[in-house]
Design a binder for these strands. Structure first.
Length: 275
DNA sequence: CTGGGGACGGGGCCC
DNA sequence: AGGGCCCCGTCCCCA
């Protein structure tokens, strides 16, 4: 999907110079939430569906629909938001999505950072806690009670001293808080489409979804006139123009444009019949 | 059944 | 450190 909606030269490994585009969409996104109440809809004015000159990305109308979480955001039932509504944790750049409802854990209370599960002593950091815990049994593997404010996850420190972050809502575990926070968004779904109410974990997922409403297709196939809203879909489409597809059956050497097709081919025993 | 498009999710990397 | 974006992948549906 449009995990990306920026102009990019195909066939290059280098990332595009986003800064060049920033003047077009960055700032707009940054102010969207305040400028555009969630109720507003962009696209129905038709003005959005643009003519797409090649891959030119027209973000023109997106901000309108790119609203922050609505009050009915599913994050509420998950009980993740409230503790994080403090503005402290929201370096969250544009606030284009979270608006205080972010799932991101807030900065813990400095006076009650990491608590020892054994004696309740509060430490200022996982490292300090680990050190402290050594005083109990010489090991630091004990569970670290995450800061009270962090209700979304529990942190544990492995015997090796590396912290791991557990999602409160599922068994997933991450080695960095950032990864966990990212994951938690898939539970809180802070990005809500103002058109249909569908919620997404990340802003760009929402942007891509919005294209399904606007009909915008910024990604054009250089070989035919087809255009796509999703770069991944264009990529898959490009495979159809290729003589030799990306995915090859190990048995019959037949190639497929998609992994799923290869999989289906394999499962169905298609390679047997083609041999 | 196969091929292809639409929509979306998540990890990793870069800034 | 956190956010934004890319890549890879999956699932569903339709012709």
């Amino acid at each position: 999907m449009p995990r990306s909606f920026l102009v990019k030269k195909y066939f290059t490994n280098k990332k595009p110079n986003y800064s060049e585009l920033e003047g077009q969409h960055g700032p707009r996104f940054a102010v969207v939430p305040e400028r555009f109440p969630p109720a507003e809809l962009p696209t129905e004015h038709g003005s959005v569906v643009p003519s797409f000159p090649g891959l030119v990305w027209d973000m023109g109308a997106l901000p309108l629909s790119f609203a922050p979480v609505s009050p009915t955001t599913p994050s509420a039932p998950l009980d993740l938001s409230s503790p994080f509504s403090s503005s402290s944790g929201s370096s969250s750049s544009s606030g284009d999505e979270d608006e205080g409802r972010t799932s991101d854990p807030p900065s813990p209370d400095p006076t009650e950072r990491f608590q020892c599960a054994h004696c309740g002593k509060s430490c200022s950091s996982p490292t300090a806690l680990s050190r402290h815990q050594l005083s109990h049994c010489g090991r630091a593997e004990t569970s670290v009670i995450a800061p009270a404010a962090i209700t979304t996850a529990a942190t544990t420190v492995s015997p090796s001293g590396r912290s791991s972050f557990h999602c409160k809502h599922c068994p997933k575990e991450y080695t960095s808080l950032g990864a966990l926070k990212m994951h938690i968004r898939s539970h809180t779904l802070p990005c809500v489409c103002t058109t249909c109410g569908k919620a997404f974990s990340r802003p760009w997922l929402l942007r891509g979804h919005i294209r399904t409403h606007t009909g915008e297709r910024p990604f054009s196939c250089p070989h035919c006139n087809r255009a796509f809203a999703d770069r991944s879909n264009l990529r898959a489409h490009l495979q159809t123009h290729s003589e030799v597809k990306k995915y090859q059956c190990g048995t019959c050497s037949r190639t497929f444009s998609r992994m799923s097709l290869l999989h289906k081919h394999t499962v169905s025993g298609g390679c047997l019949s083609t041999q």
